[in-house]
Computed example of a mutant assay.
Amino acid sequence: MSERLIQSVERAADILELFLVTKPELSIKEISENLNLSKSTVHGIIKTLEHRGYLQQNPEDSKYRPGIKLFELGNFVGKHLDIGKVARPFIRELVDELNETVHLVSLQRDEVIYIEKVEGHSTLTIYSHIGKRAPFHSTGVGKSILAYLNENEANRILSSIKLESFTKHTMTNVEDIKEQLHSIREQGYAVDDEEIELGLKCIAAPIFNHQGNVIASISCAAPKMRLDENKLPKVIAGIKKAAAEISICLGYKGKHLIE
């Protein structure tokens, strides 16, 4: 495999990736020193990348920075990534590990929609199915997304949706919900403790895209009696890890979600 790699393309990639770990602007000398390449080699590659729009030169100090073409490509990749396809192997791995039902939901406009559902080997009939809307206030997936939206956006949604009571445990007071959202942000996951269906408990964590925006959530749903003090820590760790790994695959570069 290695003998088929083209050295000039490898070096061009090294130069572009250098901006991810150093400074937003770099001189030819700085690039040369960081990559241990001659200035003449760096100059030739940079001029090619500049010509194609992948780099642009600051006329004030002659340093180079990422160009608009990289921005266009990044946006294209972000928009066309299939969240379900990216998440599917992580979901299957989680189901095998936990032997419980795992959901993936996507934020679409002002709705949270179930887009993937893989059931564990234990039979369990629960509220969800693919294509169904998940209430923001009474599901783990809904709350984990709501908690990480812009505060104004979260307030707008809370003021516009019907805070319907599904069980005696459903939270319908806006201030109580906001307090819980704060706790979710602190711990990195949300809990639905019989709020959408009696006897059902869910643990959910948010998924972020390359722009750092919350766009989805993954959850594990099981009978409350099975999520006891012995299994619950494993479920929480598994859900947070899967959410982090999916986010990274979508280009997320923010704080690691499983810390």
Rank of each mutant, 00 (worst) to 15 (best):
T172F: 09
S122K: 13
V105S: 13
T101C: 11
I157R: 13
R92T: 04
K69I: 00
G142A: 04
L104G: 00
H103K: 00
N75Y: 15
G120V: 02
I145Y: 07
K143H: 07
T125L: 14
S160T: 03
N75F: 14
P89V: 00
V102H: 08
D96A: 14
E151H: 08
K132F: 13
N152M: 07
V174P: 05
L70D: 06
E179D: 10
E164H: 12
P135H: 03
N173P: 05
Y148G: 01
L70G: 05
I157E: 12
E116D: 05
E111F: 07
K178Q: 12
G140D: 07
H137Q: 06
G131A: 03
K178L: 14
I83L: 00
T101L: 09
H80T: 02
T139C: 08
T123A: 14
I145L: 08
K168P: 10
K162T: 04
F166Q: 00
L70M: 14
S183V: 07
S122Q: 08
F166S: 02
R185A: 12
I126W: 14
E151V: 06
E72N: 11
G131Y: 10
V105H: 10
E153F: 03
F90P: 01
K168D: 15
G140N: 05
E153K: 10
E164D: 08
T125N: 12
K69V: 04
S122F: 11
V95I: 01
R133L: 13
I157Q: 11
E186M: 11
L107S: 03
H169V: 03
E100T: 02
A147F: 13
L146A: 01
I184K: 09
R88T: 14
K69A: 15
E179H: 14
F136T: 00
V141A: 09
I157W: 11
V77F: 12
E153A: 07
I157N: 10
K143E: 05
L70S: 06
L94A: 00
G131S: 01
D176K: 13
G142I: 07
G78C: 08
V95M: 03
V77G: 03
S138W: 07
I145A: 06
V86G: 04
L70W: 09
D96K: 15
I130C: 05
H121A: 11
T167Y: 12
D110H: 11
K117N: 01
T172C: 07
E179S: 13
L70N: 08
I115Q: 06
R156N: 12
V112H: 05
N155R: 09
N173D: 15
L70K: 02
V141N: 11
S128H: 11
R156S: 15
I113P: 05
I184N: 07
G84W: 02
E175R: 06
V86W: 10
M171I: 15
N152P: 01
D96E: 15
G142V: 03
V86Q: 04
G67Y: 13
S138M: 06
